[in-house]
Amino acid sequence: MSALASRQRYLPALVTGCLFAAMFVAGGIRYEGFASGQVILNVFVDNAFLLVVAVGMTFVILTGGIDLSVGSVVALSTMIAATLMSGPGWPPYVVIPLVLLIGSGLGLVMGYIIHAFDIQPFIVTLAGMFLARGLCYTIGTESVPIEDATFTAFAQTRIDLFAEMWISPSVIIAAVVVAVAAYVLHYTRLGRAVYATGGSEQSALLMGLPVGRTKIAVYTISGFCSALGGVLLSFYMLSGYGLHAVGMELDAIAAVVIGGTLLTGGSGLLLGTVLGVLVLGLIQTIISFEGTLSSWWTKIFIGLLLFVFIVLQRLFSSRSSR
């Protein structure tokens, strides 16, 4: 029983993986030209920014929190980057670190308020969402194109792989983020403290873990990931706009949940989140291949998947807690 139990934590991610494989196979049978490596790679190319944001969200949700501000912070990052590059003409290597700093700073402040004043993360990050979106509109209400030569050149780079398949630099960046995050979660004390805090904050405190610092850290990480996601989105869009990434917090939360992470915290794998993002991306791909199915089916499917996974989680947790 216990040998099984020790592997149980991989089960949700496995389910998501099977779902992804099944969707891919079904798509391959149904549509011509679907079953190619490039289709999967395109899912990565088109969702690199979401992947990065979802990584940050995974940290937050693992502690039992939630971050509603991510979409707005993504938008704010594109806006700041675009404005600074097009207006005063700052170079990207100054702008990008600045944007990352601002995003992390916002996360830090939200984390601090959540921890120090014991206010629900939902409300604090809601305020953060309003703030970041409001700042976007204050900077400008129009879309700001990015014309910096270095930036656009980098954004349009294609990295060729074998057999005429290619990826964008953003995919590499996202992959690095995933790898680093997985390392942090599994191999560092911070990562284990994240799981412990989500499992039982009270116990974590009594076991001497720095719960407050951990909570502040995860919101900072989420802020950083959102800002980086914003940078990747500006590579993808080559513009900054206050209406970018509207509702992306929902996509990120959905990806994390579909990836098998418990919304109550304490259980989940980063690999699951990656698979969750892939499933979301593949749904869009299938709908575009289908042609007759309209884009809103994406939302309905995501909602359905959310429902199924949440009910499964509920059954799972009520059985294990007995």
Binding site: R189, R192, S200, L206, M207
Partner: peptide
């Protein structure tokens, strides 16, 4: 007062995990 979501070994050592080269 333990974290039941973590493994038995971690519950004994969390916060004082043995490390090798930082990990």
């Amino acid at each position: 007062n333990l974290c039941t979501n973590l493994s038995v070994a971690e519950n004994i050592f969390i916060g004082r995990e043995p490390r090798k080269r930082g990990r």
